[in-house]
Nucleic acid binder design. Structure first.
Lengths: 228, 228
DNA sequence: CGGAATTGAAACAAAGTGAAACATAAGCGC
DNA sequence: GCGCTTATGTTTCACTTTGTTTCAATTCCG
């Protein structure tokens, strides 16, 4: 399943571990691998790349902090979240300085754990730039250009890029003029309605084979629409 | 001063804020900028690039979570740590989901805060001998050069290196001209805005396969951006 | 010292943007 | 259909932003 975040869950208390694993899996956001020992965790980390590690510090064969350092040495770059029953400040500091990204004290509410996991995952997320198929073109908003079948590039201005982006987002639907104005020019736009038309015109000159007979960026009453 | 981490400290209670700022500065690890209002924080974030933001949620003019979202929209990519007196689970979850990276409940011990700050900074760290992947190049700021796939080296000048470093630090975000000027040339830059453009131009000549059609170092309205 | 690299500024060129003016098309009541 | 009004298309202009070239001053280095 794509989109599922791979989590390595390390906890020696089997009952608690499995209960937590079930809860995580039930969210349909995670693919959970379990380990009951530090050695098992190391093996798992060597055998796969995880998006996040949840680590209970009360392991029998290895101290949680040592395991954390060991994982870091093994080039584990993903966030490591420590779970613990200890609640002294010293523990927290040592845990974090061992390379953990967050430190959560038991007992905790599951939704809070989830929120902290999301926060960690968010920061390690790669924002890959989307690429859209747009009629005969490939649309790359990040580089502000369209690429046609013959690999020819059409450079777009910023406004043009934004207009296309919002029209594309509306799928096959009509986007009203004032909506487009708000989205592209901002909420207190000091621009005339004619400005939008000018830009639509220039866009058509660039992207329509026959600009005076638009078939890609068509006019609908009240707004415009991209034809898929 | 090199090596100092730039922290934006936002808190409306002046006494507490200044006390905390002093403690942070006393560690000799941080360069602290203070803001007493949400508006002030936004201004500060627009004018410079910080390594971390500490955010008290009890601001007078803006809700802390709203401010957090606003900062994220402004392309603030650095860790945001929320401080708060509230301790309900719901608060924690909302705070984290607003885009915060950590959520610390008052009262807290300063060493614990420090440990959590270090943990956040560590994950976003750029060590001095860091090596970045930058489009088709390997970027080694320390030796001021780019290395391409054929192991050919491109020597960069100091300004060019700094420009790339700050653009890289903004991840995929746009860096405004004046921010870049401040970061590269210093706060009372006696340089013209044209100077920046000249340097960008020369940089493109070096790093872009087709310099007149930039795809790596692209222009966005108001600034520049590195395309991953 | 002499030459090359680096830097900043000036002058000019090109592109992007918004508005105005005008043209055409579409809707609507009669 | 007719004439009116409105919506949209087209052209052009003024202004701003960004790109490019060139030059002089400075620094670095052998």
């Amino acid at each position: 399943m794509p989109g599922l975040k791979k989590i390595l869950l390390v906890d020696d208390e089997e009952d608690l571990r499995e209960a937590l694993a079930e809860q995580l899996i039930a969210t349909d956001d995670f693919d959970v691998t379990e380990a009951g020992t530090g050695a098992g965790a190391v093996d798992a980390a060597k055998g796969a790349i995880f998006d996040l590690v949840i680590l209970d510090v009360g392991l029998p064969d290895t101290d949680g902090r040592e395991l954390c350092k060991k994982l870091r040495k093994l080039n584990v770059k993903c966030p490591i979240v420590m779970l613990t029953g200890h609640d002294t400040d010293a523990d927290t500091i040592l845990g974090l300085d061992a390379g953990a990204n967050d430190y959560i004290t038991k007992p905790f509410k599951f939704p809070v754990l989830l929120a902290r996991l999301r926060a960690q995952l968010r920061t390690h997320e790669q924002s890959e730039d989307a690429i859209f198929q747009l009629g005969p073109y490939t649309f790359k908003p990040a580089m502000k250009m369209l690429i046609d079948g013959k690999d020819r590039k059409i450079r777009l201005t910023e406004k043009e890029t934004n207009i296309l982006k919002f029209l594309y987002r509306a799928q096959d639907g009509v986007v009203a003029r004032d909506v487009l104005l708000h989205e592209v020019w901002g909420y207190n736009a000091g621009v005339t309605t004619h400005t939008l038309e000018t830009h639509i015109y220039r866009l058509r000159q660039k992207i329509e084979p026959d600009p005076s007979n638009a078939r890609l960026l068509v006019t609908e009453s009240g707004g415009y629409r991209l034809v898929a």
